[in-house]
């Protein structure tokens, strides 16, 4: 399910791009945005269906999101529909370490140094796994889980988005 920040980030990216209309669908979540320049009515609709295998998700009220920094998109509506719980349950029990911000991914503390972690390494909750840097702010990302690194999803020096998965960890 998309977080409000992720929706905000999407709006920002779309707003700054030359894309007129944007549709995104995944596991019952649908995001649809249009810019005022296009012919279609002016709105952004986000439909989210929660796939929660265990506990029911808290009911989310439709929200009108103020978007002062995004003048081209005038309203965001978040709608949520309950759906039968026969939807695919996430079978992979892997933990995703995601990026807390937009920036450059650094696998090691300096270009010559070995990476913080590699596949097969055991990590603890406070193990630093990488750095994400934006505007000379360096964010040391911690694993936040005990386990083993199964996959490194990003290459050194790559630009990562907010919420983008960086590592897969098999929790212990």
């Amino acid at each position: 399910m998309l977080k409000i920040q992720e929706i905000r980030e999407l709006i920002r990216l779309i707003d700054q791009s030359s894309i007129e209309e944007f549709v995104y669908e995944n596991e019952g979540t649908k995001v649809h945005m249009k810019k005022p320049g296009s012919n279609i009515p002016l709105e952004t609709v986000v439909k989210q269906t929660v796939v929660e295998p265990t506990a029911p998700a808290p009911k989310q009220e439709p929200v009108v999101q103020p978007t002062p920094a995004q003048p081209a998109v005038q309203a965001v509506e978040v709608k949520q529909e309950e759906k039968p719980k026969q939807e695919a349950v996430n079978t992979e029990n892997l933990h995703k370490i995601t990026s807390p911000m937009v920036g450059t991914f650094y696998a090691s503390p300096s270009p010559d140094a070995p990476p913080y972690v590699k596949v097969g390494d055991k990590v603890k909750t406070d193990t630093v796994v990488c750095i994400v840097e934006a505007m000379k702010l360096f964010n040391e990302i911690e694993a936040e889980v005990n386990g083993e690194i199964v996959e490194v999803l990003v290459k050194n020096g790559e630009l990562v988005e907010y919420g983008q998965p960086l590592f897969l960890v098999k929790p212990e």
């Binding site: 807390p100 911000m101 937009v102 934006a134 505007m135 000379k136 702010l137 964010n139």
Partner: peptide, 11 residues
């Protein structure tokens, strides 16, 4: 503030 806004502090 949310962490993703923190880079603004460098400016």
């Amino acid at each position: 503030i949310p962490p993703q806004k923190a880079p603004q502090l460098t400016l």
